[in-house]
Computed example of a mutant assay.
Amino acid sequence: MDTVRGWLRRFSARAEQIRAYFTVLLVEAGVDPVMPAAMATPFADAVAAVAGAWKAAASRWPDIGEVSPWQLACAASQGRLLAPTWP
């Protein structure tokens, strides 16, 4: 069984891949996309990219705003964001 610590470790290990994936999603979904500012760590950059993609999608499709950024991340990664085989 995975723990939150394991999930965070997995997220951290693939932070650059997550950042890149959700930055592309942000650009593709956004009407006038705003890139997130650079953060202090790759982990924070990845979190900012997920939030930015959510914001871009919500600005284009208002019903998306009814779900959390992490629900969008789960849907965009087909439920495999923290799976051993993603991306």
Score class of each variant (00 low, 15 high):
1 M>D: 11
1 M>T: 15
3 T>E: 04
3 T>H: 04
4 V>E: 05
4 V>N: 04
5 R>K: 11
7 W>K: 04
8 L>V: 14
8 L>R: 09
8 L>Y: 06
10 R>A: 10
11 F>Y: 15
13 A>C: 07
13 A>W: 06
13 A>E: 15
13 A>H: 10
15 A>G: 10
15 A>M: 08
16 E>T: 14
17 Q>L: 13
18 I>D: 00
19 R>K: 11
20 A>E: 14
21 Y>S: 10
22 F>N: 01
23 T>C: 01
24 V>W: 02
26 L>Y: 01
27 V>L: 13
28 E>R: 13
28 E>C: 10
29 A>Y: 05
29 A>R: 04
30 G>L: 08
30 G>F: 04
30 G>Q: 04
32 D>A: 14
32 D>C: 07
33 P>L: 08
34 V>T: 15
36 P>M: 02
36 P>Y: 03
36 P>N: 03
38 A>M: 10
39 M>F: 00
40 A>P: 01
41 T>P: 02
41 T>Q: 02
41 T>S: 15
41 T>E: 07
46 A>R: 00
47 V>I: 15
47 V>N: 00
49 A>Q: 02
49 A>Y: 01
50 V>S: 02
51 A>W: 07
52 G>R: 01
52 G>Y: 03
53 A>P: 00
53 A>L: 04
54 W>Y: 14
56 A>Y: 00
59 S>Q: 12
61 W>C: 09
62 P>I: 09
63 D>E: 13
63 D>M: 09
64 I>F: 03
65 G>D: 05
65 G>K: 01
65 G>N: 07
66 E>N: 08
66 E>Y: 07
67 V>Y: 04
68 S>G: 15
68 S>R: 08
69 P>A: 09
70 W>S: 11
71 Q>T: 15
73 A>R: 01
73 A>Y: 01
75 A>M: 07
75 A>L: 10
75 A>N: 06
77 S>P: 03
78 Q>N: 13
79 G>Y: 05
79 G>I: 11
80 R>H: 11
80 R>L: 13
83 A>L: 03
83 A>Q: 05
84 P>S: 09
85 T>F: 05
85 T>A: 11
86 W>M: 04
